[in-house]
Design a protein around this nucleic acid. Structure first.
Lengths: 321, 321
DNA sequence: AAGCGTTAAGTTACCCGTAACGTAAAGCGC
DNA sequence: GCGCTTTACGTTACGGGTAACTTAACGCTT
């Protein structure tokens, strides 16, 4: 008991005893068993579960980095969960991670399976739903309005004079932010007098490579597509390379628009038309909300992290006139 | 006790009781407390701690993905630790994560602080040191020989006819794989009759952006550099863009060589000269070694995952003649 | 029906850190 | 020196799951 007091610096021991305890700790290489502390229910755990679709996407990798850095600097540990974009994997992970009594959970997306939702509600721990801003979150939410970001891109492309537009993305078993973006995009394009000629949803991951081959597939047998909107920048970059490789002039022959604003954009001579989302800031904001809730500070339930359109040079109004 | 037996499917209960227990579990939304199980010491935890320098580097993000996917499919959870390339942060993380009694640890690199090394030895749990192949690991090791990979690149550049060579990388407070690579590179270049004109080590992260500005800095006031070797592909790509932007012809005026082979290479028209390392495979191999050790299967202590040179088009023997 | 093995439960103790409480000794004022 | 407070440390109990053990009930054999 005295040793416990010394190690927690709680007071109620002499300087002499303190030195003795610390010497023994060093001598024996003693490490306290946090399991016992948390198990006894005297303090809450320092774990925070963080679920992310995948790390192949640089955006999510950076969100995770932002979260872990912030949590880590406040003595918390990140328990990772990769859901591969499926609700089933998310549900399984939630079940497992909850049995470890985490201090809180940070989840990507607003769509969870019914069982997952029930478990989350029962857990009674702080939750942050990130990425897809949720006006009625389970607990807290931080992200952006994907529908609006899709709309804005749609309006921009229409405004640049593009009429026949294609889309290349990937498909998942469930609703997600990318489909919400696409919804907003289609509404804006059609509302603005444009036309979505073709939507291609590949059963694959959203990478450079799939963007390249998705574009080939999209353009095969179609000659009237004036502009392509991609699910993310990696796919758009793959698509751009395909078009350039086929001798098309971008943006004169075809416009290319991505989403997400990859780091590589900072050094490319041609700036990809895209939508910027502050990734690291998003992760840090999520961690901050979690930490605030854990220390019983007041937190607003929703936080819109914002986005802004990057006009870039792969879409152009002048070239279309 | 009977409920415990039912939930573990251990036997010793009637079908009737089983149904009753399961019904109650469902009714109450009961989740077993894994903390108690592990705490009691009856079974080992399912946590595996994984430390990675940072996630801004796509390579490490993919290694982590490989690890988590494999571990996850065997019912283990990843506890993340980002060390920001410092031994102090690694040590702090190790101390914390060990107090949670993880089943094992996967660490990046072979260099750990003395205290960290001691804690790791005392922990008596499986350890895998990844990335930098360690012939005398603390427990197990999987990765590549960075010195050799640097040498191979050095020999290749010399073989292409480049004599005056520069290097752009980042510096860290401690020894790491990148400096080992540089050592091997320098030895091979000088052994082959070449000359390292200038080595630039920026106090920054190894990204596209730092590669761009590092190259500007390296070339300022020097006119005799024929080829630049970069710490990684992101930096090399930034450097390539700088050179192209300044009207230099690559590889005629200057050769550019990276290291790591980024995914984006698959769609670029010009293939960056680089060194390919199977990232996902590395992560999976690390997880497999960990899992094998945890289930008491025999495991070899070292596993060389291999690398191979990608000649690419940003370095060329013909153009130099 | 007595004796035995089998099955289906229940009981006890333990893991380790700490809250809550107990106690002995020292310190202090008068 | 008495009674009080303060300091320093010790003791007990608890958390939840489970190994190890005990008990009760049942079925089978002879």
């Amino acid at each position: 008991m005295t040793a416990s007091r010394v190690l927690r610096g709680e007071g109620g021991y002499s300087e002499n005893t303190r030195a003795l305890v610390l010497q023994k700790v060093d001598e024996l290489g003693y490490l306290p068993n946090r399991l016992a502390t948390v198990f006894a229910g005297d303090s809450s755990s320092t774990f925070v579960g963080v679920s992310i679709p995948d790390l192949g996407n640089e955006v999510f990798a950076q969100v995770l980095e932002g979260i872990d850095r912030k949590l880590g600097s406040f003595g918390h540990q990140t328990v990772l969960g990769l859901t591969q974009h499926t609700q089933q994997q998310e549900e399984n992970w939630i079940r497992t991670v909850l049995s470890w009594k985490p201090a809180g959970l940070i989840l990507t997306g607003r769509y969870h399976s019914p069982r997952a939702t029930e478990m989350l509600k029962n857990a009674g721990i702080p939750l942050v739903e990130i990425w897809d801003l949720n006006s009625s979150p389970l607990d807290m939410s931080v992200g952006i309005n994907h529908f609006d970001s899709g709309s804005e891109m749609g309006r921009y492309l229409i405004g640049c004079g593009y009429g026949n537009i294609g889309y290349v993305g990937t498909s998942h078993d469930t609703a997600n932010a990318a489909t919400t973006r696409l919804d907003g995009f289609c509404k804006a394009v059609e509302g603005g007098g444009g036309h979505i000629v073709k939507q291609l949803c590949l059963h694959d991951t959203a990478t450079y490579y799939t963007g390249f081959y998705g574009t080939e597939q999209l353009l095969a047998g179609t000659s009237d597509i004036e502009c392509i909107f991609f699910q993310n920048d990696a796919m758009a970059f793959g698509g751009l390379q395909y078009c350039l490789g086929r001798g098309m002039r971008v943006p004169r022959d075809i416009g290319i628009a991505g989403w997400g604003d990859l780091p590589i954009a900072s050094v490319l001579p041609e700036r990809l038309t895209s939508m910027h989302v502050p990734h690291l800031k998003l992760g840090q904001a999520a961690a901050e909300m979690m930490l605030a809730r854990l220390s019983n500070e007041p937190v607003s339930a929703c936080r819109d992290i914002g986005f802004h359109l990057i006009p870039g040079t792969t879409v152009s109004a002048e070239e279309r006139r």
